[in-house]
C-alpha cells in the first residue's frame, strides 16, 4: 500500500501497465502480511512449544498403558478406584458451593458499583481491585492466621458466647471454601459489573413510570438484562475453582484433595506419566466444555431478548 504511484497517466493506460500495477500492489500486500506474521512468531513459538504441543503430548501419553500398549486403562482407574470418584465429586462440590457464595456476595457489590455516582464507584472499585491484585499466597496465609484455633475469629466467637471452645475452621472444608471465595469474588464482580454498566438506566425509569415498584422493576428488567454477565462470571469462577491449587493445598491441610493436587501427586506416585496425563486431559475437557457452554449460553441470553 505504501508504494502506490500517483503519477498522472498520459491518456488511458494500457493493459500491460495495469497488470504491472496490480502485481506490484499484490506483491506489496503479501510482503506486509509476511512481515506481520513474522512479528507474531516469537510469541507464537513460546505458546506453541510450551503449551499447545505439551497438551497434545499429554493427550497421547494418557492413552498409553504401563506396558506401552494403546489402552484406556489410565482412564479406567478413575472409575474403578473409590479415591478418584470421591475426589471428582469433592472438586465439583467445592467449585459449586464457591460459585454460589460468590454470586450471593458479588451481585450486590456489582449492582452498587453500577448505580453509584462515578466518584464513589471509583473508590468501591479500588476496594475490589486491590485484593484482586494481591498475591494469592499472601491472602491464603492471612486466612490461616485468622481462622486458626486461637485466631481472632475463634476468640471473638468464644467471647460472644456463640461457642464454648474453639472450633476447627482451617485444615478442612470450611477454611478451603472461605479462602477460595475470597480469591474468586472479584472474578465474578468484574464481568458482571461490565455487563450491568451497559444496561440503559432509562429502562428502569420507564418501568417506574408505568407503575412498577423498584423491586418489581429490578426483577423484571435489571436482573434479566444482567444475566449474560452473571453467567459469564459464574462459569469463570467455576472453571477456575476446578483447577485451583494453592488454597485447597494450604487451607485444606492435606485433607481436601482436588484435581490439581491429584495431578501433581500422580507424577511422583505412578511409575509412568499416564495417570497424571489422563487426569490433566480430563480437567482440560471439563474446562473446555464449561467454556463452550458458557459461550453459547451468553450468546443465547444476549440475543434472546
Amino acid at each position: 500500500m505504501a508504494n502506490v504511484s500517483i503519477f498522472p497517466a498520459p491518456g488511458p493506460i494500457g493493459q500491460a501497465e495495469f497488470e504491472a500495477n496490480r502485481r506490484a500492489l499484490e506483491r506489496d500486500r503479501r510482503a506486509e502480511t509476511r512481515m506481520r506474521i513474522n512479528l507474531t512468531l516469537p510469541a507464537l513459538l513460546v505458546v506453541f512449544v510450551l503449551m499447545v504441543c505439551p497438551i497434545l503430548w499429554l493427550l497421547s501419553l494418557s492413552v498409553v498403558a504401563g506396558d506401552g500398549r494403546l489402552s484406556l486403562e489410565n482412564y479406567a482407574l478413575f472409575f474403578s478406584e473409590q479415591v478418584y470418584v470421591e475426589m471428582f465429586l469433592k472438586t465439583f462440590m467445592i467449585a459449586f458451593v464457591v460459585t454460589v457464595i460468590c454470586v450471593f456476595l458479588g451481585y450486590p457489590v456489582a449492582y452498587l458499583l453500577a448505580i453509584l455516582p462515578p466518584a464513589w464507584s471509583g473508590v468501591l472499585m479500588l476496594a475490589v481491585l486491590v485484593p484482586f491484585w494481591t498475591s494469592g499466597l499472601v491472602r491464603t496465609f492471612s486466612w490461616l492466621i485468622i481462622l486458626q484455633r486461637n485466631g481472632i475469629v475463634n476468640k471473638s466467637l468464644v467471647w460472644l458466647g456463640v461457642i464454648d471452645k474453639p472450633i476447627s475452621l482451617v485444615h478442612n472444608m470450611t477454611g478451603t471454601v472461605i479462602g477460595m471465595v475470597h480469591i474468586m469474588v472479584p472474578f465474578l464482580i468484574l464481568p458482571l459489573y461490565a455487563s450491568m454498566k451497559a444496561i440503559d438506566g432509562n429502562l428502569m425509569r420507564a418501568g417506574a413510570n408505568l407503575g412498577s415498584s423498584p423491586t418489581h422493576a429490578f426483577f423484571r428488567i435489571f436482573l434479566p438484562l444482567s444475566m449474560p454477565g452473571l453467567v459469564a462470571g459464574m462459569i469463570m469462577v467455576f472453571v477456575m475453582c476446578l483447577g485451583f491449587y494453592i488454597t485447597p493445598a494450604i487451607l485444606g491441610g492435606g485433607k481436601i484433595k482436588m484435581i490439581a493436587q491429584r495431578i501433581e501427586e500422580s507424577i511422583s506416585l505412578y511409575p509412568t506419566w499416564g495417570p497424571a496425563a489422563a487426569l490433566a486431559v480430563l480437567l482440560l475437557l471439563m474446562t473446555a466444555v464449561c467454556l463452550f457452554v458458557s459461550l453459547k449460553l451468553v450468546r443465547w441470553l444476549a440475543a434472546g431478548r
Partner: peptide, 29 residues
C-alpha cells in the same frame, strides 16, 4: 489476513487453561 484471528486466540488462550495443566506440560517437555 486469514490467520490473524487464530493467532490472536492462540496467544490469549493460556488464560483459559488451568495453570496446573500448563505446569505439568512444561515439566514433561
Amino acid at each position: 489476513f486469514r490467520l490473524s484471528e487464530t493467532i490472536r486466540a492462540t496467544l490469549i488462550s493460556p488464560l483459559a487453561v488451568p495453570s496446573i495443566l500448563i505446569g505439568v506440560g512444561i515439566f514433561f517437555v
